[in-house]
């Protein structure tokens, strides 16, 4: 039986520049949970649940038990990782926050996750965003919500990235913007060797 789940970019195949300067791929297996809660109250409560803490520094993340916890706002975080790891963390969070006013939501289907990596990744991204992605400014683990072309998305430089190697960025974007973002990223990578991608188009429009 074919998979019933069809991710936002299932119709796209991963792209790679010839010399590995840049590659683009969807991460359809990534599970996501959104959390909104008061940071201080939550971290007090989570202290009991050993090892769990929400990053309070704006635009940073924490990598714990296979899950990336991304700061999205002063009372908003995104959990991102393999399904099992996210589920395990969700259960522990649920326990830890039971007594606190919070909102914990499955947002896996809401968003698409696009991975962009390679030594040209920063350059390609800066064709689309006004964020300063200089290696000395946007560092491993950093997170930023911004505009990428005409799409709003969250950018995350994986903290697991080794400075010796090429950076790996994740872009978390609303699923209906994913195809657009994929295509503008491919266009940005064209001079580094990515093939052109044509957005879904050709529908018959009403007169």
């Amino acid at each position: 039986m074919p998979d019933r789940r069809i991710s936002a970019l299932a119709h796209r195949t991963p792209l790679q520049a010839g010399d590995g300067a840049l590659s683009l791929a969807e991460r359809p297996q990534v599970a996501m949970r959104g959390l909104r809660v008061d940071a201080k109250a939550a971290n007090r409560a989570l202290k009991k649940t050993k090892g769990l803490a929400l990053p309070e520094t704006p635009n940073t993340s924490r990598h714990t038990e296979g899950v990336h916890i991304l700061w999205l706002g002063p009372d908003e975080w995104l959990f991102l990782g393999e399904v099992d790891a996210v589920h395990a963390l969700r259960d522990r969070l649920g326990d830890g926050l039971a007594q606190i006013h919070h909102q914990l939501l499955d947002v896996r289907d809401q968003n698409a996750v696009i991975a962009l990596s390679g030594k040209r990744a920063r350059e390609a991204l800066m064709k689309l965003t006004t964020l300063d992605l200089h290696p000395g400014v946007f560092r491993p683990g950093d997170v930023a919500g911004s505009l990428f072309g005409r799409a709003t998305a969250t950018l995350h430089l994986l903290e697991t990235y080794d400075p010796e190697r090429d950076p790996e960025f994740l872009l978390i974007v609303r699923r209906s913007y994913a195809d657009y973002l994929w295509c503008v990223l491919a266009r940005a990578g064209r001079e580094f060797g990515l093939p052109d991608q044509t957005p879904k188009a050709g529908e018959i429009m009403r007169p």
Binding site: P74, G145, T152
Partner: peptide, 8 residues
């Protein structure tokens, strides 16, 4: 409002 960022 930081609409594309932290929404504050």
């Amino acid at each position: 409002n930081h609409a594309a960022g932290c929404r504050r």
